[in-house]
Every structure is written in structure tokens, then in C-alpha cells.
Design a protein around this nucleic acid. Structure first.
Lengths: 256, 256
DNA sequence: TTACATTGTGTTATAATGACACATAGTTAA
DNA sequence: TTAACTATGTGTCATTATAACACAATGTAA
């Protein structure tokens, strides 16, 4: 379906299949080159960037809707996702809408459900960067990773949503399987440390970090070192999933 | 307005003033006689208990809606509230509805917005038990405190909501002003310890507890002891609000 | 005035933490 | 080939935090 036709359909018929007044937005985190990244869409015409989002089907669990959005952008399934906040500022979804953008698409129905107020539920997803080929949706030109230290101005209140997701990520570091989801299956101790340093925004002592994280018992050291690296080759590790999940239930007693 | 008339109006005209498909439910915690309690309504006719809840006005912030519900039941304002989870199981709000209950009220409009699916946002409130005189709403016979260890069967998924609020309360103990909101202005060290023991569900060493909480600097010891108690009179304390709020920002480094 | 329960304030052995040193392995440049 | 360089692997030690515990002080009730 062409972009214009699809957006017209959404505005005119969307309320027949989606819940009213509710949307979801996804902050999808990845980690690459020692940098924390999020997936951003570049909206057509509007020219601005946005978080991937969507609506909830009339008979769909909200977590399922979030998983659907994630799958559409990344092709990933069965990924750990977590709702972190509801954003409900009256006017958050109406006051900043680019009317010209809508007009361009040939939407004439100004009484559309899409012009009503939306309360949005923010979700975070933690994904393995190396497994993702971002895919844009019909309404967007591109879908790409963006360094969290270099986020452009986003539509609506998406900057605020992203900010809240980031602080939430830090706070929940000991209660969510952050490392397990953001790193590849096999990784090195420096990789893991860089991830923690990036999320926490501070440097950690290499030796103390190793001692503490080993003590949690969530890692399995492999008889294998990383290949093709400069200098001394670091050992590879895997997560011990059983121990990891058990540890997360009470919280990773892990002060850094 | 009579109960029947009011409920008829809500079913037939509610969608003109409220957002569709969204509601809020409030888990209002209090602490009394060394027991953690929540406010429960007893619904008319239905005979079952329920959490206080409500809908969101078309131009109302969701946090404001929660504050409004809290004020209607407790007359309290400016109370610390916190959204903790969105419950969206399809069918959570429709499958368990007592049709007879609706019929009794004279509602004939079966296409009402009230029969649509609702996604609900759970809020917790922490209030000073001694300052509250619970007030029932038009749809309820009573509104009373109920010990969290003795919760009856609740309507819809309210048992699940309450459970999630409780675990959330435990997890966030070091990040929310739990003590400050649940205790009276002046309190004793044993009072505070009992509160922590109740929420955490385990006993704590009296002397270690005191040492640690004093070390956080969030308390001000008064030159005053509790009157009219058996045995040795314990000192009274107040919270040092400035230090408390500062400490909460980074988390109360307070392992028990 | 004595027994009792509860609070106030220690002490001590053990464990966790932060700061730091040196050996090891692999790359790079002479 | 070898020396310089850089990042990793592992260990030490002084300091601090923690859990477990003892005893004196205070007010009630018999």
C-alpha cells in the first residue's frame, strides 16, 4: 500500500481496530563499539526523528503490541521488554502535530481518532546489536541506531521518554538482565565492563569489577580467547543463565 | 444524585467526559498497629471488594486523576503517588463483570463505552493512617482499611494489581519516601523499624537497624520521648526532609 | 523494691571494598 | 629478531562496613 493511502486509512479507519487514546513507544537499546545506542525513525515529510511506536489492537495485550513494534523494526522475537512509564501530559500528542504533514497525505477527516489525545506507555527493549538490521516503517524514511550521547530533537515528548528510559535503565541495572540482552552470546570482561561504565556514566576499576562480577556467579568463563585483537587476547565469557535469573530475582547484590 | 441515576449516567454519557479504554486504580497504603494496610471499597450489590479507581478526564493528566481519586476517598491532598504498572490483559475488565449488578441499576445501553476493554494504570499512594477518614463513593457501601496479610477476593484483576504494588513497594524501599509518608510527623525508632520489617517481611536487628538509619542522616532526633508507654520511653524522631530527599535521589545506600 | 520488658549504646570478629603493583601475552616498530 | 608498548590476568593490603552479640538504663507492674 502506498504511504499516502496507508496513512489516510489509519486516520479514517484506525479506531475500528485499535484502542482509543492509548499508544506505545519503544526505546530500543543496543550496544556497539563501547557506545549505548537507541533505534530512531526519521519521519517522512516531517523531517524529524521519532521513537518507534504504535497502537494497541482491540484484543491485544499491551506487551504484545510492544513486541510487535519491536519485531517490525528489528525482526527480533522473544526479546526482553519492560514497560517503564506512562506519559499522559494533556496535549503531548496534539499540540506539536505537523498539520502540513497530515494535509500532504490527503487526510481530510479532521474529526479523526488520531487527533484525539493519546496517553502513551513507554517500553524499553534490550537487544543484541549484532543481530539487528533496522527496518523503517511506511511512515519513515530511515530507521537507524543513534548514540545516546548524541540524540537529536525528537517529535512530541519523545526526548523526555528517552531520558526517562535511560535513567530507568541505570536504576534497574541490578534487577534486569541488561548484560545478557545487550551483549552477544560470547563476550569479554572488558566488553561487559564498558557496558556497565556506559550505562552508569562513570569509570570502574578493572580489577574490582572483575572480582565482584565473578563473585555473583552469573558468568561462565570459557577456555577460549578473543581472536584477532591487538595486545593480549582476553578470555571469552558466557552468562550462566540459570544463576543469572536466580540472582536477578533478589537483585544482583552488586555495588559499583 | 441517586446511585442508580449516577451509574446510568456514567454508562450512557461517561465517554463524553472521560478518555476511552483507560482507567486508573489506586493502592493506598497506610500503617497502623505495626500492620501495613490498604484501602478497599465494598461495591454495592456486587458484594465484592475493589481497589479505589476511576477514569481520566479528557483534559486531565493521569497523575492528577490518581490524586483526584485519592482525595475523594481520603480527603488528602499533595500526597506522594507513583504509577507502578499498566495492566492490559484483554478481557481483564469485561469477563468478570457482574451483569445482574448493571441490570439492577437500570442500564439498558449495552453498547456503552463501559463495556469496552479497559487498560488500567496502577498507582500507589503512601498516606499517614492517623490523618485519614475513609469515605465510600456512590457505588460502594463502605471504604475501609484492610490488613495486607488478610486481603479478600477482589473484583477483576485487583488482587494481581495489589500484589504487584506490594512487591514494587519492597523493591523501591530505598528510592521512595516510604517512611516519611507512612508514619506520623513524630515517631519512634521502633515504629520505623516495624514499618521496614513489615514491608520487607523479615525481622531486623534492632541495634544494626538504628546504626544504619542514623548513618544515612535522614533523621532528626528530638529532645522528647514518647509519653504513656509501658517500659522505657523511646525517643521521638522526625525526618530531616532536605537530607531525605537528597538521599533518595541517589538511593538510600541502606542494605538491611 | 523487685522482677520484667523495652530502649540506649556499646564491642568484636568477619566480610566487603577501594586503591594499587606486577607478571603475562600479543602487537608493532626498529 | 628484539625491544617497546599496551591491554589483560591475578594478587595484596589497609580501610570500612557488616552481622552478631552484651550490658546498662529506664519505666511499668506486681
Amino acid at each position: 500500500m502506498a504511504f499516502e493511502k496507508e496513512i489516510k486509512h489509519l486516520f479514517e479507519k484506525g479506531h475500528e481496530i485499535y484502542l482509543r487514546n492509548i499508544s506505545i513507544d519503544c526505546v530500543i537499546f543496543g550496544f556497539h563499539n563501547n557506545e549505548l545506542k537507541v533505534l530512531l525513525l526519521k519521519a517522512k515529510y516531517a523531517g524529524a526523528f521519532a521513537l518507534p511506536g504504535g497502537f494497541i489492537l482491540k484484543n491485544e495485550h499491551i506487551e504484545k503490541a510492544a513486541a510487535r513494534v519491536l519485531k517490525e523494526r528489528t525482526s527480533l522475537e522473544d526479546i526482553f521488554m519492560h514497560q517503564f512509564h506512562v506519559f499522559s501530559e494533556p496535549g503531548r500528542s496534539t499540540k506539536k502535530i505537523n498539520k502540513q504533514f497530515i494535509k500532504n497525505a490527503g487526510v481530510t477527516m479532521l474529526g479523526s481518532w488520531m487527533f484525539e489525545r493519546f496517553v502513551t506507555v513507554g517500553f524499553t527493549a534490550l537487544v543484541d546489536f549484532t543481530k539487528v538490521q533496522p527496518v523503517a516503517d511506511t511512515f519513515s524514511e530511515t530507521c537507524d541506531w543513534c548514540n545516546v550521547d548524541n540524540i537529536p530533537s525528537l517529535i512530541l515528548d519523545h526526548n523526555e521518554i528517552l531520558q526517562k528510559a535511560l535513567t530507568g535503565l541505570r536504576m534497574q541495572l541490578n534487577y534486569h538482565p541488561v548484560g545478557y540482552n545487550l551483549l552477544p552470546n560470547k563476550f569479554t570482561m572488558p566488553d561487559l565492563q564498558k557496558l556497565y561504565e556506559t550505562i552508569l556514566g562513570k569509570e570502574l576499576d578493572r580489577r574490582n569489577f572483575q572480582r565482584k562480577i565473578i563473585a555473583t556467579g552469573i558468568l561462565k568463563k570459557l577456555d577460549e580467547t578473543k581472536k584477532g585483537v591487538a595486545h593480549k587476547a582476553p578470555f571469552l565469557y558466557k552468562f550462566d543463565i540459570k544463576n543469572y535469573e536466580k540472582a536477578l530475582q533478589t537483585g544482583l547484590d552488586f555495588n559499583l
